[in-house]
Design a protein around this nucleic acid. Structure first.
Length: 455
RNA sequence: GGAGGAGUGGCCGAGCGGUCGAAGGCGGCGGAUUUGAAAUCCGUUGUAGGGGCGACUCUACCGGGGGUUCGAAUCCCUCCUCCUCCGCCA
């Protein structure tokens, strides 16, 4: 609770799901949330009760305020402010003021509880999102390329990278602990080439505006995209030095290391009203990403598949509500283009309702083939959030035909996760002698180097 | 880190504790003029939450929060943000 309330006071976010929509369509909302495995019916009933109370409290308070306003007006027009009548009236109005304060306090309490509930409800799955609760229910949409075949036993990226002396897990552990990696030599170079390549393709060929955002963000930004309040444990937060703050009389914001560039880039338009004619807006940006991986103990402990710090190029789009679904296809294709240009075998799956992220209403994952694991692994997740994020961060547009501001729709996707792309290149392009071929598209970014040679 | 200054509607910018949702300008929209456009003139133009079938009406919002007061954009406290100068620093 305390984690995000300061954000509430500094950016005044609207609740995520529309209160009116939820409270007036409780059965439908319950059904939709059940589809993604959320089935706390009691919580939703509580929300309904609170919504009703909120309405009656507001009506009451506003009537009292109207009375006060009218009385104050009359007071202003009294010529003799010292008259006994004026003094008496003043006493009466003082009581009225106290009643208003009581009503306001009740309203605040009700709204605080409502907000807490709403902020913790996930987005409703889009009708186009298939049923299912786990990744086993995801739907394969299309497959690109063929599985590479080897006439030797395929090595995994750890063996390959260590052998080539381009990945160093032991020294990373010495410096930073488990789940970190040091890239060396051509490994570092390859990482840098991938970042450059991806940004170039998206900026020059796909029309995205390139941005380089901060990687430390306020809690209000994390709240806007949906990482907070529910998933605070997944992010790294800057330690606040209470002693120092007391001494300096300062009280800074909580700052979080971004788990994805989605957070700073999507929040670029928080609390803004953009011109409808400017939509769609598209940004691409690189950031390092930081994740605590709380709760994933024992999962992917080997190698750089799941690490605390990794690099990623992100795609973010803002669009008109009518275009959201089509924009998701566009964005997904943009991400897929990178894998195609790199010649990496992969597939596209649509996530079922239960496997989607908290804020998403429809998602596609790009899964790249890892021969050593003999499995497809997520390398990009492309999602359409409807107005879920926009509502939380108050990102709106003014329709071209005049009219009231409306919430934009937001989308994002990895374009791509650089670390996992590097893993896929090592594993899919490995040669019998342990060397690795550099994808043709990357050669210009590698100063002409076509192969990472075996030692 | 030290010393100052400032935060008002889409933007700029006025505003004696009551008649201020807030002058004026820009921008936007509608209209007049024009072959059309520019220019000019007239009008109009915030967001959100309640109530009413509805024309409509009420309430809140002048960076956030709190306080004083019958009454706060205006007074007090506090926090945040931005700017200027000095210092330090990649």
């Amino acid at each position: 609770m305390r984690d995000w309330c300061s954000a509430l006071t500094c950016c005044r976010p609207a609740p995520m799901l529309d209160l009116r929509h939820v409270s007036e369509n409780l059965p439908e909302v319950k059904a939709a949330l059940t589809r993604r495995g959320f089935s706390d019916a009691a919580l939703l009933d509580r929300l309904g009760t609170l919504a009703e109370e909120r309405r009656s409290v507001i009506t009451g308070v506003e009537a009292l305020r109207q009375e006060r306003n009218e009385a104050s007006q009359a007071m202003a027009n009294v010529a003799d402010k010292k008259s006994e009548e004026f003094q008496t009236r003043r006493e009466q109005l003082r009581t009225l003021g106290d009643q208003i304060k009581q009503g306001e306090a009740r309203q605040a309490a009700v709204e605080t509880e409502l907000e807490a509930i709403l902020l913790n409800l996930p987005n409703l799955p889009h009708p186009g999102t298939p049923d299912g609760l786990t990744e086993n229910d995801n739907v394969e949409i299309r497959v690109w390329g063929d599985k590479p075949s080897f006439d030797f036993d395929a090595r995994d990226h750890v063996e390959l990278g260590t052998g080539l002396d381009i990945l160093d897990f032991e020294r990373a552990a010495k410096i930073s602990g488990s789940r970190f990696v040091v890239l060396k030599g051509l490994g570092s170079r390859l990482n840098r080439a991938l970042m450059q390549f991806m940004l170039d393709v998206h900026a020059a060929e796909h029309g995205y505006e390139e941005v380089w955002p901060p990687v430390l963000v306020k809690d209000s930004a994390m709240l806007g995209t949906g990482q907070l309040p529910k998933f605070a444990k997944d992010a790294f937060r800057m330690a606040k030095d209470e002693e120092w703050e007391a001494e300096a009389g300062a009280q800074g914001h909580d700052l979080y290391l971004v788990p994805t560039a989605e957070v700073p880039i999507t929040n670029l338009h928080a609390n803004e009203i953009v011109a409808g004619a400017d939509l769609p807006i598209a940004y691409t940006g690189y950031t390092a990403c930081f994740r605590s991986e709380a709760g994933s103990y024992g999962k992917d402990t080997r190698g750089m598949i799941r690490v605390h710090q990794f690099d990623k190029v992100e795609l973010v789009r803002f669009c008109h509500p009518d275009e959201g679904e089509a924009q998701l296809d566009v964005l997904t294709q943009h991400a897929q283009t990178i894998l195609q240009k790199l010649g990496l075998h992969h597939r596209v799956v649509q996530l079922c309702a239960g496997d989607m992220g908290f804020a998403a209403q429809k998602s596609y994952d790009l899964e790249v083939w890892l021969p050593a694991q003999s499995a497809y692994r997520e390398i990009s997740s492309c999602s359409w959030f409807g107005d879920f994020q926009a509502r939380r961060m108050k990102a709106r547009f003014r329709p071209e035909d005049k009219g009231k501001p409306r919430f934009v729709h937001t989308l994002n996707g990895s374009g791509l996760a650089i670390g996992r792309t590097l893993v896929a290149i090592l594993e899919q392009n490995q040669q019998a002698d342990g060397s690795v071929n550099v994808p043709e598209a990357l050669v210009p970014y590698m100063a002409g180097i076509e192969r990472i040679p075996a030692p």
